[in-house]
Design a protein around this nucleic acid. Structure first.
Lengths: 114, 114
DNA sequence: CAAATAGTTTCCAGATATGGAAATTGAAGA
DNA sequence: TCTTCAATTTCCATATCTGGAAACTATTTG
């Protein structure tokens, strides 16, 4: 269930528009927690907690420079998410076309599915 | 903020492995709420509520046949999600390669980003 | 060392999620 | 109509999420 837990964390992290905004912001350049707090008009505590959620989902990484903490978008991890979703889509797409050709050739009335 | 709300709902719906399992199950064939409840060892009430969450995210649709309610995977909506994520990835990818070439050509020391 | 600064964590309150049990709705069938 | 069955909704308890305020940690600077 390890991968499933990881997906839980990723999707949960992405389910909040503030966090997606932070992620988009970090995609342009790495920023400190304080910079993010000022950008999004939140306390540092609040940003720090959201950052933690994104970090646990492995969507970002952190690095220290003195007393400042820089947050970096983890592009590798995002690529993985994109790949997973695209593959899932492709897989379902295949099933769907199989189903459609089955319906086209074998079935006529009584439409259950959709 | 309409699109953002939609994304909130979609990602939230996907953030639970039970709901992802239901979705995968429905990708094979449409099923009734009762069938899903039996498959996943949950009460109908619990399944019905999760179905509602997936429906509000427009990841599935429902249709009635007598007193049974069939749930269908909404492939169109999923394609939209996949497209959004892939586009986002591509957008960030481009930014990333711009950044990398910028670093390659102009900068030498002092590595902030990552 | 003391003061200031950047972040994190803790504590708190209010909001929301979750699923079981039971009441309710709506359709089928005797 | 009365009963049964599929599903939804309501009620409830438990758990988690969220962000502000304040306490705490760690690092820089005077």
């Amino acid at each position: 269930m390890e991968i499933e837990d990881q997906l839980d964390r990723i999707f949960f992290a992405l389910s909040d528009s503030k966090r997606r905004l932070i992620l988009t912001d970090l995609s342009e350049e790495s920023k400190t927690v304080g910079q993010l707090a000022r950008s999004f008009d939140l306390t540092m505590g609040a940003v720090s907690k959201n950052i933690k959620i994104l970090e646990e989902a492995e969507l970002i990484t952190k690095s220290k420079r003195g007393r400042q903490v820089y947050c970096h978008m983890n592009f590798d991890s995002w690529r993985k998410v994109a790949k997973f979703i695209a593959m899932q889509a492709k897989f379902w797409e295949r099933r769907l076309s199989e189903l459609e050709s089955y319906i086209d050739t074998k079935v006529s009335g009584e439409h259950y599915g959709r």
